[in-house]
Structure formats: C-alpha cells, structure tokens
C-alpha cells in the first residue's frame, strides 16, 4: 500500500515535469501586477466592472506582432465600449531582444497612440503561467478570469482585408451570448518568446 502511494507520488512528480505548462480553456488564469508604459501598475482586479479580458502577449520587434498591431489597437477600442478590457503584455527579455526594452515599448505605444495598457512582464514570471509561447498569442478570459479562448486573432496575418474568420471576435460574441466559443483554441505562426540564455 505504501509502495503504491510512493509510486503515485513519483508519477505525479514525473508528470508535473513532462506536462506542458500553461492554461487550457476552462482553467482560471492568474491575475498579475505589471508595469505599463505610463509607469503605473495594472492588475485585472482593478477593473471591477469588466465583462472579460483580452490578454495579448505581443512585442515591438516581431514582424507578426507588427502585422497585428493596428488590429489590436482597433480591438481595444471596439471592445472597451462593450465592457472588455484589452491588456497587452510584452513577454520578451530585453537582454535577449533589445528592441523589446521598456523604453522602446514606451516609444512604440506613444507613436501608435495605444489606448490600452502595454505591460512589461518583468522577470518573465507571467507568460510561463499562461503558457504563452510566442507573439502574438491571445488569451480571452471571462469576468471570473476563466480562460475561454486561446490562440490567434484571426486567420490572415498578412492582410486584414482578406480575413475570413475572426477567431477572437467570434469568441467574444459567443461569450456575450453565454455560449462557449467554437473553436476555443486556434494555432498560428509567431515569434518565439525571447529568453536570455
């Protein structure tokens, strides 16, 4: 009996090592307290009336993130009026990717007139908990921080006018109707998150 307990424990330990970390749809996401380009700290808990959160891991340097920048700006504006808060987080370590430094985030946010917090994942503590692996990488959370959708913004990175499926917007529309998004997970190419070696 003792041995079975030990084996179960061992298996548990092994699984925790081999299982990919990060959230799946249905998990409760962690809140964070991160500094934005305005030097203020932001948490999801600050938004008492939010109907949900659009957490976008993105950055300055990645050409894929740049292609989506205007779409992210538009999404923030469009959904703010509907009660959804968009929070952009730069997960990269500037020591590995100098273009993604806090100062250059400030510069970029100013140039593009970001209307949403652009947060710096200092110490790279948050992105591994979410399981973000690339930029851009979107997590849609409901007001209780339950993950409802993970993946891409839409199905055409190159040309916003040629988009056939707006995955993220469809997922928000499903939430509005009290339904589960379909698909609730999508995949797209992106830049790997930069970590200093």
């Amino acid at each position: 009996m003792k041995r079975i307990g030990f084996l179960a424990l061992l298996m548990g330990v092994l699984m925790s090592f081999t299982n990919p970390t990060g959230y799946k749809v249905g998990d409760k996401a962690t809140d964070f307290k991160l500094k934005s380009v305005d030097n203020k700290m932001y948490s999801m808990a600050d938004y008492k009336d939010a109907k949900g959160f659009i957490v976008v891991f993105t950055c300055n340097h990645c050409p894929y993130a740049v292609k989506y920048e205007d779409r992210i700006i538009d999404l923030a504006k469009k959904y703010k009026s509907k009660g959804y808060v968009l929070l952009a987080i730069n997960p990269n370590d500037p020591a590995a990717q100098p273009e993604d430094s806090f100062e250059l985030m400030q510069k970029r946010a100013k140039e593009k007139k970001f209307t949403f917090p652009y947060l710096f994942d200092e110490g790279q503590k948050i992105y591994p908990q979410y399981g973000a692996t690339k930029t851009p990488h979107v997590f849609l959370l409901d007001k209780n921080l339950i993950v409802k959708y993970i993946g891409a913004i839409d199905d055409n990175v190159e040309d916003a006018s040629q988009v056939k499926e707006k995955y993220l917007e469809n997922a928000i529309a499903a939430l509005e109707k009290g339904q589960e998004p379909t698909p609730n997970t999508t995949k797209a190419i992106g830049c790997s998150i930069k970590v200093k070696k």
């Binding site: 990919p20 692996t133 690339k134 990488h137 993946g151 891409a152 199905d155 055409n156 990175v157 190159e158 995955y167 698909p183 999508t186 995949k187 797209a188 190419i189 992106g190 830049c191 790997s192 998150i193």
Partner: peptide, 20 residues
C-alpha cells in the same frame, strides 16, 4: 498555405506555432 490553423497540428499536435 497561410491558414496556419489548418495544418500546424498536423505537423505535431504540441506545436504552438512559434518558429524556429
């Protein structure tokens, strides 16, 4: 084919889409 969602998982279901 840039409809990545169509085929990324066919390469490997654990591929999240980052390159390399």
């Amino acid at each position: 084919d840039k409809k990545f969602n169509n085929w990324i998982s066919k390469v490997d279901e654990n591929w999240s889409g980052s390159i390399p």
